[in-house]
Design a protein around this nucleic acid. Structure first.
Lengths: 108, 108
DNA sequence: TTGACATGTAAGCATTTCCTTACGCATTAT
DNA sequence: ATAATGCGTAAGGAAATGCTTACATGTCAA
């Protein structure tokens, strides 16, 4: 069937794909440089990258015979937005800071 | 095979399960009250709830012949923590505030 | 040009996911 | 006691996922 759009949440549901995104935080990388970090075969890495690409979480740029993958962090916003919905439950610095701001309260 | 722990990220990868969590934000609910909101069969809803239960994202309490499900928002922290990693990319109030804090900078 | 390199695609297979219908089992209501 | 209610579980099947090996393709290097 497949009613459920593949989408960002599906793409980040696999730990290998999250790690790939994490690797790309430090900048673009060609596939081999990504694949080094995983035990799976290189084609498997390509397939994961394809999922990330389809979800819009990365882009691809050809550079000679390499293909560099680049993070598109804005595409993580659906996740950020959804999780933000729950922020009031976590009474951490972040939440305190936000309330602090919202209240216009000056004290730390 | 099954190397990939089911875990929280898997649990929230399905839109129906995210909506179930969203419903529970307003308080505990028995299964039928949850199922009303979905087109799928009630057993399917039970199965989704089971996934959430296994991920620790909800708890179950029996109340007469009902079973009330309750949100366990702290279990979303792995998601929050992971996504927080990317916050520096989103130049919103939140990120500015954090940088503000980190720098010890006093100006808004 | 010929070969090595970087990478994607194809095919195949095991496993998981997600849904359905049928049924089982408490608990409450009559 | 009997029926209705609220739910889980079982069984089964279609599709998706995640991996592998083999192969195709484009690019650089000798």
């Amino acid at each position: 069937m497949m009613h459920t759009e593949p989408g960002v949440f599906g793409a980040i549901s696999h730990p290998a794909r999250r790690r790939m995104l994490d690797l790309l935080v430090d900048g673009d990388r060609p596939v081999n440089s990504i694949a080094e970090n995983f035990e799976m075969s290189r084609p498997a890495v390509s397939q994961h990258l394809r999922v990330l690409l389809d979800a819009g979480l990365v882009t691809e740029q050809r550079h000679g015979r390499e293909r560099r993958y680049r993070l598109v962090p804005e595409r993580l916003e659906p996740v950020r937005d959804w999780i933000a919905h729950y922020e009031r439950f976590w009474d951490d610095n972040f939440a305190r800071l936000r309330r602090h701001l919202e209240k216009g309260d000056k004290q730390q």
